[in-house]
């Protein structure tokens, strides 16, 4: 089974730079499995990333790949997708990348309903710079820049994307590897802007500071706090406190930007011929 996935990897670029126990390999594998199960044309699939630990993933993937500047992956990807709508464009981003420095690009891509798939490797910490708090760090958690506990409230990125007009939002975790693959498959298949909040453990910089010393502790932490969507909807706000729903949270249909644009081009060219 593992062998069949080799063709999606740049084997000569491995081993990867991630720490032992990091969740990013699991999320990357889920993406590769999703691509494989969907049978995407590898010549027509582009993977774009920003800056951070997550951003190194495209370097290991055998597609056209683009490792951009911090927070800007979605904006670069917008140019690629608008230029060549026939390409499958997948964005790998981190929580700091997507929600802090790149927050503006995230909400606007959602609003446009451009056919992009964004997978957020959400480890709620800045790992590459060794453990500062991000907009996804839970309140009270410790980071190098929240030595007394995180004072601010974190984003709910799925809600943010939904509020901005995104037509697909899902959440899963590295604990739920099979579900994670399935929601990524569904996200890639979705015509329109699709966002997946993929919770991934950072034992090195988050776990150690927050009494979750081993990768297993962190994955159990995901398991204990996650609630399937069906059960979630029946819970009271008090019961929901400290937990989060997993699964496909929203999936709707709306006109997709490159299709709307193509219609405009057609209309104008017909008018030109008249």
């Amino acid at each position: 089974m593992a062998l069949s996935l080799d063709k999606y990897l740049r084997m000569s670029k491995l081993p990867h730079i991630w720490c032992p126990g990091c969740g990013h390999g699991i999320v990357t594998q889920a993406i590769v499995r999703a691509i494989d199960e969907l049978g995407l044309d590898t010549d027509k699939t582009v993977v774009v990333s920003g800056i951070g630990c997550s951003a190194r993933a495209p370097g290991y993937l055998h597609f056209d790949t683009l490792h951009t500047t911090h927070g800007r992956a979605i904006a670069f990807a917008t140019g690629i997708k608008m230029a060549k709508p026939e390409l499958n464009v997948i964005i790998i981003t981190g929580d700091g990348d997507a929600a802090a420095i790149g927050g503006n690009h995230l909400i606007h891509a959602a609003r446009r309903n451009l056919d992009l798939t964004v997978i957020c490797f959400d480890n709620n910490i800045y790992g590459m710079t060794s453990g500062q708090y991000s907009p996804l760090t839970p309140q009270g958690s410790y980071a190098t820049t929240s030595p007394y506990g995180m004072l601010e409230k974190p984003f709910d990125l799925c809600n943010l994307v939904m509020g901005a007009g995104g037509t697909f939002a899902a959440r899963s975790t590295t604990y739920h590897a099979r579900q994670l693959t399935n929601v990524i498959k569904e996200a890639i298949s979705h015509k329109g802007f699709a966002f997946v909040d993929a919770l991934s453990q950072c034992p090195t910089y988050f776990g150690r500071r927050n009494k979750l010393r081993t990768p297993l502790d962190m994955m159990n932490w995901f398991k204990d706090r996650s609630v399937p969507l069906r059960a979630w909807s029946k819970m009271s706000p008090e019961e929901q406190e400290g937990k989060f729903p997993v699964g496909v949270l929203t999936k709707t249909q709306a006109p997709e930007l490159t299709e709307v644009y193509a219609q405009l081009v057609e209309k104008l060219q017909q008018r030109g011929e008249d």
Partner: peptide, 17 residues
């Protein structure tokens, strides 16, 4: 685009396409 940074980014992406 949503800002100047994004428009330069989109231009880079389109150039690569």
């Amino acid at each position: 685009m949503e800002d100047e940074i994004a428009s330069m980014a989109a231009v880079c992406g389109a150039s690569l396409a």
